[in-house]
Design a protein around this nucleic acid. Sequence first.
DNA 1: AATGAATGAGACTTCATTCAT
DNA 2: AATGAATGAAGTCTCATTCAT
Lengths: 196, 196, 196, 196
Amino acid sequence: MRTEGSSRDKSWPLIRRSGIRLLYKHGFHGMTLRALAAESGMQAGSLYNHFKNKNEFLTIIMRDILQELLDNISDAIIDEQDPKKKLEKFVSVMVAWHAERKKEAMMTQSELRSLPKPEYHEIGKIRKEFEILLLAIVTDGVARGLFRTSDPRLSAIMIINMLSSIANWYQADGRLEVDELTAQYQDAVLRLLDAR
Amino acid sequence: MRTEGSSRDKSWPLIRRSGIRLLYKHGFHGMTLRALAAESGMQAGSLYNHFKNKNEFLTIIMRDILQELLDNISDAIIDEQDPKKKLEKFVSVMVAWHAERKKEAMMTQSELRSLPKPEYHEIGKIRKEFEILLLAIVTDGVARGLFRTSDPRLSAIMIINMLSSIANWYQADGRLEVDELTAQYQDAVLRLLDAR
Amino acid sequence: MRTEGSSRDKSWPLIRRSGIRLLYKHGFHGMTLRALAAESGMQAGSLYNHFKNKNEFLTIIMRDILQELLDNISDAIIDEQDPKKKLEKFVSVMVAWHAERKKEAMMTQSELRSLPKPEYHEIGKIRKEFEILLLAIVTDGVARGLFRTSDPRLSAIMIINMLSSIANWYQADGRLEVDELTAQYQDAVLRLLDAR
Amino acid sequence: MRTEGSSRDKSWPLIRRSGIRLLYKHGFHGMTLRALAAESGMQAGSLYNHFKNKNEFLTIIMRDILQELLDNISDAIIDEQDPKKKLEKFVSVMVAWHAERKKEAMMTQSELRSLPKPEYHEIGKIRKEFEILLLAIVTDGVARGLFRTSDPRLSAIMIINMLSSIANWYQADGRLEVDELTAQYQDAVLRLLDAR
DNA sequence: AATGAATGAGACTTCATTCAT
DNA sequence: AATGAATGAAGTCTCATTCAT
């Protein structure tokens, strides 16, 4: 007799990791289930023991990733009261995540369009929450006279865009460490908000 | 039946336009040549009178688009001497292009990975030129004491990222006009560079 | 719908038989995988569970057939010591095979050119072995004063050519039985070698 | 103004030569009209000024080639009275032709099956004439007590097979000259017929 | 007689998915 | 939970052929 769930416990993380790599590299339509199976050490048919179909697989992966990032951010800012501190924490988590989880980050950006309609909206909503979170910080800061911007929503968008784009170009073996990068982005964001 | 006078001059622009739309919507692997043909009013096989294969099609389209943007920028800044003016022109062209040519812009960002190796490098080189152009403006401005930044290359990257991301969210029917958007981004970029 | 118990053991022999018939009738380029599938009672795509591609299919079939004939011949002559007896056995196996396995025989002759380069050489080598086997018999016979020929290699070629050509014209329902044919060819070959 | 027929006079021989080479190398189904056109220095569509369709092209080429060989043989034996002399002439023309016109020879053998039904019979009839011609010589020789064979028709077939097969293996740059080859085959054929 | 862009069919091949084992 | 052989649809690409120029 086999330990309950043991096989799934072993296979799924493998499939997940392979899936992220392949989705990052080839995109949803460019990733074949055969390739996913091969990289996970099994046959294509066996994958169906782990998800209902390819679309569901994408949904699971994306929801999972975005939720994790969202949790990271929430955890980080929940204890802060000061908008500036909050903002710095927000930037810090975002920079680290987009630099260190490059593949996940890029994938969730480029494969949104491949989701079926209902899931597209569901996942889109999660992504929207980052913006809402940030916007709350910004408007709070503006209200307290810490930040200055003529269009808080646009500022929030600019900031999120800047941070998200890190995944597009950052190389772990490049000249910049994550720590330094974080400091730079914190500085840049504060300038953008004319923080004093 | 054959449409009268159908010739390269008429077909290619049609194929090009359809291709951009489909690449934007579905990505390279998600775009089928059958769909491209249908939207261009011909049979799939006929497409092969216009390109050698699907990969070459992508390459042609991407090279074409990026070269056009690069030309636009070069034309715009060539007459300016002042770094600040140059920077404003640069931002202005980039904003307009990423807002109005959303599809082309997103496509060239997301489909780079779908290019075959040699073409990937060729197109990558064109994209790199935007960065080089902007970096030159920034360092010039810093040298003249107009801008201030501890890491000019990173600043250039941030700016390009911010601008490029416009294509990801801008909606022509949204609350912001291109003119206002341009002004906002010019302002933001100047803040980022601590321009006085 | 799926035929109960369809498996490699059942499918492959069917595919093989159909393939030989179609290769014989239409040649490699004239045989379509759709036709092969239809005649094997499956979908074209399913064939790819049994070979990698059309070229590999041809290679497998040809290697298989030629190896079987080679084995037949080796088995037949291995116990004989006398060159004349050996020669008669050789002729006997060749006649029977080229008359009764007409399709296989013709196919291996005409489709050599359709093999990809490396396989062409591999299969060519097997075919060469028939000639080597026969040449050994002939030179042995000449050495023992049983046969006489001014050019043993050419004689071997003539004999193989004569025998191989049987497949081109023999009709199972024609006026000649295989037994009689064998006797006639044995006689002819001995005359050619001036055997006394 | 252009000299009448000048263009066809130039193009057709080119097409013919290219066609024979390609039919020899790839077979009928393996030869594409695009390849034929390219090798003839024109576009595929232009070929249709020279024949009605691909099938007709094959028919023309094959009829042409076989008729030429038949004429060669007829011319060679028409003046001889003696069966032995006649036979030697027959062999001589056949050897030379199959050695020197290897491609044409192989092609007419392997592409018979690619002809449409009516043309198949027409061309088959021409090929049959060789056999008839040879059979006449053999029976004449037997009647005059010059040759001896228990089955004249089979002997004729054997001889034709032997000679036709030369095209399959002969290499112009090999160890045997056509002259010597001719002598060897004349000798072999006479042995086969037990000529004294 | 030649071109080049088009057609419509069909080629080989791959894909997501199913299911008996 | 995994396999391997199957399906049916669809993918990219090539082909013979046509025809306005």
